[in-house]
Amino acid sequence: DENEERIRAFALYKGIDPEKARELWERGEINKDDEEKAWREYK
């Protein structure tokens, strides 16, 4: 689903483990601007 892809995109963008990215996502600790930037680059 799209959230999974967004988490993966963010992990790649930040160079972090996707599981770590998922934890940040679930806790609401992902910066929305960074997340959008990562998503645009990923697509």
Score class of each variant (00 low, 15 high):
Asp34Lys: 01
Glu5Phe: 06
Ala21Leu: 02
Glu41Arg: 08
Tyr13Leu: 06
Ala38Phe: 10
Lys43Arg: 11
Arg40Ala: 14
Asp1Leu: 12
Lys37Glu: 12
Lys20His: 12
Glu5Trp: 09
Ala9Met: 05
Glu29Ile: 07
Lys32Phe: 10
Ala9Pro: 00
Asp34Ala: 04
Tyr42Glu: 02
Glu4Ile: 08
Glu26Leu: 13
Ala38Trp: 10
Phe10Ser: 04
Ala11Leu: 01
Lys37Gly: 05
Ala21Ile: 03
Glu19Arg: 09
Glu2Ala: 12
Ala9Asn: 04
Leu12Ala: 13
Gly15Cys: 15
Ala9His: 04
Gly15Lys: 10
Glu41Met: 11
Glu36Tyr: 06
Pro18Gln: 12
Arg40His: 13
Asp1Ala: 10
Asp33Gly: 08
Arg8Thr: 08
Ala21Cys: 10
Arg27Cys: 10
Arg27Lys: 14
Asn3Trp: 15
Arg22Ala: 05
Tyr42Gln: 03
Asn31Tyr: 05
Glu19Ile: 13
Phe10Glu: 04
Lys43Cys: 15
Trp25Leu: 09
Arg6His: 09
Glu26Val: 11
Ile30Val: 12
Ala21Arg: 00
Glu23Ala: 10
Arg6Gly: 01
Glu2Ser: 12
Ala21Thr: 00
Lys37Phe: 08
Gly28Arg: 04
Gly28Lys: 05
Glu23Gly: 06
Asn3Leu: 15
Phe10Ala: 05
Lys20Gln: 14
Arg22Tyr: 06
Gly28Phe: 03
Ala21Ser: 03
Ala38Gln: 03
Glu35Phe: 15
Trp25Cys: 07
Asp17His: 11
Asn3Ile: 15
Asp17Asn: 08
Asn3Val: 15
Glu36Gln: 05
Asn31Lys: 08
Glu2Ile: 13
Asp33Pro: 03
Glu19Tyr: 07
Asp1Trp: 13
Asn31Met: 08
Lys20Asp: 10
Arg40Tyr: 13
Asp33Glu: 14
Ile16Val: 06
Asn3Gly: 08
Lys14His: 14
Pro18Met: 15
Lys43Phe: 11
Tyr42Phe: 10
Ala11Met: 02
Gly28Val: 01
Ile7Leu: 08
Glu23Ser: 08
Glu23Arg: 08
Ile30Phe: 11
Asp17Trp: 03
Leu24Ser: 02
Lys32Trp: 14
Tyr13Ser: 03
Glu29Ser: 06
Asn31Ile: 05
Tyr42Trp: 12
Ala11Asp: 02
Asp1Asn: 12
Ala38Leu: 04
Ile16Gln: 00
Ile30Leu: 06
Ile7Ser: 00
Asp17Cys: 15
Glu4Met: 11
Ala11Ile: 02
Ala21Tyr: 01
Arg27Glu: 04
